[in-house]
């Protein structure tokens, strides 16, 4: 009885929530696509500084990129643990995912603060506007993911995250990995490929 929703007849044999969620992710592609298109279309058109070359911190962002990648790994391991019914590993890997996600947010907090200190705000120039809105929107997604995964972690501590809830974890995982792939794109097109020669 506990899996009535899953056991329901469906036309495709697939979970309905999963179909809806992939549709949502498709929609998110267009959301981030529009933000990235705007960033790229405006790149190098700011009439005042600071410019990306002057201000983007590649070493720090490389580390935060790695952190987010590791959180994705922790997420898939958490899912396999849930499917196995391994409570200990479920908690371990969910904690790791949440921890890495929080670390990423801390890095972003540090980055935004240092940019503001160096004179780049959301209203300074085109770069500031497009950069902060794009990466801020991504950060907001990470924050929502951290809250979502924390909820799952609490459920796990309460022994309410058994194998029958694997789909709940899988869907949270889909969200989390998608946020990760968006960052993979942002890291490349915003941080690594910059306008003009890199000194």
């Amino acid at each position: 009885m506990t899996t009535t929703a899953l056991a329901h007849h469906t036309s495709t044999g697939q979970d309905t929530r999963k179909i809806a969620f992939w549709t949502f992710i498709g929609s998110e592609c267009m959301l981030f696509g529009t933000l990235i298109a705007t960033y790229l279309s405006y790149e190098g058109k700011s009439v005042t500084g600071p410019t990306p070359q002057e201000i983007l911190n590649i070493p720090v962002t490389s580390v935060s990129t790695f952190v987010l990648l590791m959180s994705s790994l922790a997420m898939v391991l958490a899912l396999t643990a849930v499917v196995r019914g391994d409570k200990l590993q479920t908690r371990l890997w969910l904690t790791a995912t949440v921890g890495f996600g929080t670390m990423f947010l801390a890095f972003q907090y540090y980055e935004f603060n240092s940019f503001v200190a160096e004179g780049l705000t959301i209203s300074t120039n085109l770069f500031g506007s497009t950069f902060f809105v794009l990466t801020g929107c991504h950060g907001l997604h990470v924050l929502i993911g951290v809250i979502w995964l924390t909820t799952l972690l609490i459920l796990s501590w309460r022994d309410q995250l058994g194998p029958e809830k694997a789909m709940n974890v899988e869907i949270a995982g889909l969200y989390w990995h998608f946020v990760d792939v968006v960052w993979i794109v942002i890291f490349t097109v915003v941080y690594l490929i910059q306008r003009g020669p890199v000194a």
């Binding site: 992710i25 592609c29 705007t38």
Partner: peptide, 22 residues
Amino acid sequence: SKIFTIIFTAPLLLAGLMILAL
């Protein structure tokens, strides 16, 4: 299932084309 691939790649492709067009 292929369903998910279709649901995801269609808007992904569209987003890519939109970026290039804009």
